[in-house]
Amino acid sequence: MLFPSGPGVRPVVARALYGAFAEFRREFDAMCRVADRRLPLPLAAVVFAPQDGVDAGLLHRPEFRRTALFAYQVALLRLWREWDVLRVAAVAGEGAGGCAAGYVAGVLGLDEAVRLLVSGHRLFEHGGTRAERLLRAGGHDRVLCCAPDQENRHGTAPAEGIRGLRQELLEGRGPHARW
């Protein structure tokens, strides 16, 4: 399961899932309860604000955007698990998605993940993401790194394009796949 860092939550999609599925709603609410202790306004009020309302613009602020994306990703995964749509054999992520990957893998606690997201501390440090290091420390010896490598800091795809990158990831080789 790949948890990306952006572009963010589409409020209309989150609102539809929240209204239609109890499992999504329960998980999203659980994420919001923890986030609300650290954010200046309730996360749900920002995510579900009227599109032209004052609070809707807060979703562009990094602490709200990252935390909302994390809550959305985790709640969506829980919904898919409830439906038995997928069985997660591995997780990977970048930025807010790295926190989601670490949380669902059980090596990052919910409060710690939310603290990292809200505080704005760099999620990437020397030696990989904090979530990546915690995954390794937790006994997960195969961690897929989805961040740009040293020679590819701008995140551009390899010369072969996205198909080449996908093939490298599937085969576990290349600068974009560290196991």
Rank of each mutant, 00 (worst) to 15 (best):
D141K: 05
L79Q: 07
R38D: 07
A71Y: 01
R115K: 10
D84P: 03
R37D: 14
A75P: 05
G98H: 06
G98T: 08
L135G: 10
L123Y: 01
V104P: 08
F124L: 10
V74H: 03
Q51N: 10
A71K: 01
D111A: 11
V91I: 07
D36T: 06
V47G: 02
G57K: 14
A44V: 06
D55P: 10
V118R: 09
A113M: 13
W83Q: 13
T67E: 12
P50I: 14
H126D: 12
L86H: 11
V91H: 01
P50H: 14
A75W: 01
G138A: 08
A89R: 14
G95D: 07
G120A: 06
Y72W: 11
G109E: 00
A71C: 04
V88D: 12
W80H: 11
A71V: 00
P40K: 08
R87D: 15
A96D: 11
L108K: 00
H140I: 08
G139S: 04
L79C: 08
L39T: 04
H121K: 13
V114H: 09
L79M: 12
R78I: 02
G109L: 04
D36L: 02
G139I: 02
V85A: 00
A101H: 12
D84V: 00
A45E: 14
V34T: 07
D141R: 05
L41N: 15
L58R: 08
R87N: 14
R38G: 03
G102H: 08
L77C: 04
G53V: 10
L110V: 01
V88A: 11
D111H: 08
G97T: 00
V74D: 03
P40M: 08
V88F: 10
A92E: 04
A71H: 02
R133C: 00
A44P: 03
G106E: 05
A113T: 10
R78V: 03
G109D: 05
L117I: 03
E112L: 02
L69A: 05
T67N: 14
Y72F: 13
A44K: 01
E112D: 07
L123F: 02
A35H: 06
V54Q: 14
V47D: 05
Q51K: 11
R65G: 10
V107L: 02
G93M: 06
E125D: 10
